[in-house]
Deep mutational scan, measured.
Amino acid sequence: MEVRTIKVFTTVDNINLHTQVVDMSMTYGQQFGPTYLDGADVTKIKPHNSHEGKTFYVLPNDDTLRVEAFEYYHTTDPSFLGRYMSALNHTKKWKYPQVNGLTSIKWADNNCYLATALLTLQQIELKFNPPALQDAYYRARAGEAANFCALILAYCNKTVGELGDVRETMSYLFQHANLDSCKRVLNVVCKTCGQQQTTLKGVEAVMYMGTLSYEQFKKGVQIPCTCGKQATKYLVQQESPFVMMSAPPAQYELKHGTFTCASEYTGNYQCGHYKHITSKETLYCIDGALLTKSSEYKGPITDVFYKENSYTTTIK
């Protein structure tokens, strides 16, 4: 009895394709271990004539594949690729409408935090270190965002349907971005203890939790000093293409032309909904596939993004 075979390709990165001759009487799992086709788990399936010449994702289970996976995804987590594939199996079914010149995501599976993050990423200057993220990001900007969303979920250790947080998501993504040249110098002034300067680099240099107003941050924000008295913390120097200011959701007025974009969060910790506000020729609110415009805006804002380049204080 002759062994019926077909020729397929296996890959971990969709760049390096490895030619395989597979036995049609055995499952993919018996031949390769966990195997995925377009995100779908085909591990328990036997090869079919229609699979001839198709590319299958496999887990990096030998040295060659491990090197290829690390170079593309910059992670050695053995569960990463499987999590990416199972997320992709959902995100490829989502709709990605162009809204006001940006790629958004039609609401499904509690994905409003991903839509808000995706919209924000198209408006701030950011370059990702893992080629996987950078490639998928370019495709997302062009309207094909399924891979990018699935990668975000995998890097953030999230599953489809789980509630997510924009600030946490951005923080994970910033860790995989090139923020080497970003720098922030802060000064804390206390009447009792004097003053202390701190220099922050990388992710810490672009994120701040405690106030939404970048102007206020430049002037000074009140913080408790270690001595128990009130101290003032203010920005001395900022070198970065953008800054992200966050605070627990509270009524906040966004003035046209003073910011790049913002995240609105309605609801409580267990259950809520994100919308995205962007400042173009007027203010726009993007909620999944829905767009509304207004000249002014007041609502429960939790993150505001500002364009920056270089700032030095005039406070002496």
Rank of each mutant, 00 (worst) to 15 (best):
N110Q: 01
G299H: 00
D77N: 09
Q195A: 14
A132W: 05
S310C: 10
R66L: 12
V203H: 13
A132M: 04
S181N: 08
A250W: 05
D135V: 08
N61S: 14
Y214H: 02
V3D: 14
K255I: 15
E168Q: 12
Y28A: 05
F70H: 08
N61W: 13
I223W: 10
Y284Q: 13
A150N: 04
F259C: 00
H273N: 00
T312Q: 10
N147L: 05
E52W: 11
A250E: 12
Y269C: 14
E308D: 09
T159M: 12
Y96E: 08
D38L: 09
S25H: 11
Q216R: 09
P241G: 08
Q31K: 13
S295R: 15
K106Q: 13
G272R: 01
T282A: 14
K219R: 13
Y96P: 04
I315Y: 15
S246K: 00
I286S: 01
T159D: 15
L290I: 13
T314H: 15
L88A: 05
Q196G: 06
A145P: 10
K280G: 11
T169I: 09
T35R: 06
D23R: 12
Q222C: 09
L59I: 13
P241I: 01
K233F: 08
V243M: 05
V58Y: 06
G101T: 05
W94A: 00
E125W: 04
L118C: 03
K127P: 12
V236T: 06
E296Y: 14
Y214N: 02
Y28R: 04
R139A: 14
T55A: 12
V188E: 07
S181H: 11
E281C: 05
T258N: 12
T226S: 14
L126K: 00
V67G: 12
F174N: 02
L118G: 01
K229S: 15
M245T: 01
G220Q: 03
L163N: 06
Y297V: 05
D303W: 01
V58D: 00
D63Q: 13
Y138L: 15
Y137N: 04
P60H: 06
V188A: 06
F32C: 12
C149R: 03
T199G: 04
E204A: 14
T103L: 06
S79D: 14
V99F: 14
E308N: 14
A150F: 02
M245R: 01
T292C: 12
L283W: 01
A132P: 03
K44Y: 08
A136H: 13
T159N: 09
T43N: 09
V21N: 10
A117C: 11
K233R: 14
Y72L: 08
